[in-house]
Design a protein around this nucleic acid. Sequence first.
DNA 1: GATATCCTGTCCGAATCTGAACACTTGGCT
DNA 2: AGCCAAGTGTTCAGATTCGGACAGGATATC
Lengths: 181, 181
Amino acid sequence: MSTQDCVLVVEDDPDVRRSARVALAYDTARVEMLESLEGLEPALAATAFDVVLLDMNFVIAERSGSAGLNGMARVRAFDPTLTVVLMTAYGGVTLAVEALKQGAVDFILKPWRNEKLVAAVSAAAQITRTRRSAETLQLDAVEKSAIERALTRHHGNISSAAGALGISRAALYRRMSKYGL
Amino acid sequence: MSTQDCVLVVEDDPDVRRSARVALAYDTARVEMLESLEGLEPALAATAFDVVLLDMNFVIAERSGSAGLNGMARVRAFDPTLTVVLMTAYGGVTLAVEALKQGAVDFILKPWRNEKLVAAVSAAAQITRTRRSAETLQLDAVEKSAIERALTRHHGNISSAAGALGISRAALYRRMSKYGL
DNA sequence: GATATCCTGTCCGAATCTGAACACTTGGCT
DNA sequence: AGCCAAGTGTTCAGATTCGGACAGGATATC
């Protein structure tokens, strides 16, 4: 799909880094690498990334994945719209579930199939873009979508939707015609 | 925490059903059971559930979990605010990831520890409640929170926040004082 | 069929909101 | 200092929106 994504890969194993670079080369505008979580924030500040691909296990002995979860928390603190894809070689179901519940948009197992990695990264970048465009909504658009939701939820009943929205029926009419609903 | 949750359990194995009933008995207001996905919608319509606990593998031979994913889709179609917790005995990481990406709020492995099941169900019910209260927001409140987000994102710069919201600076001032910001 | 209830769509004077304009403060730059 | 760009807070005539009221349609109940 898109060749315009900027990806940050955080991974300690040089072989994996190289392999990720190769896999992502054809489909991304730019791939930056980091060997560890050190210097994560400056890297995020330096480039406008669309996805962070994050290893969960920097220390071989430490297979709990807490390093990855911690890194993800730091990414989210820096920019809540930026999506994180986690990767691990040792993942169990419990860890995967925990990671997604904490906000990762995908979780992939090493070794990966290149095609799958590319698809995951590309989908995650798309989610980032959606989040960012949702953040930029004008007040009008926020109001419009709130009204649409209320109307849907009340099955088109204008009176009860107006009541739920806390405005008069006449006011809801005006807004509906304003937004073409 | 709460003893007021209503849970729907969809599970074909009678032993598992019984064991779920026992585990949930102390902490929930009401537990209903269904042996299969047949009659799902009527059951959802009859009671106002807070969580659906859904087995992924009704057919032994069928371990892909598609029955569970399908059931979850039906629950979400019926009520998008109602959370689903999936459970399985055969789950791999890939299936768990797929389930959460499709909107399950948790994914637990059989056999479970009762304590963990209760915690998962209770947390899911809390998420349902949060979603439902977010849906009921008055238009004023929607506007207020959109303004708060815009102000935060623009680091308190009123001019640029107003620009992003598509209103004049004066209008943003008025609203800020209206909402006490 | 008559009655009641709920919803719809529209009207209008009063209340509210609008944004350009103005005066002022702050911070950077030569 | 002097200058410039950008932000702040407020004012006011004019535009817009407010919601109660009204008439009509649809559906249910007796």
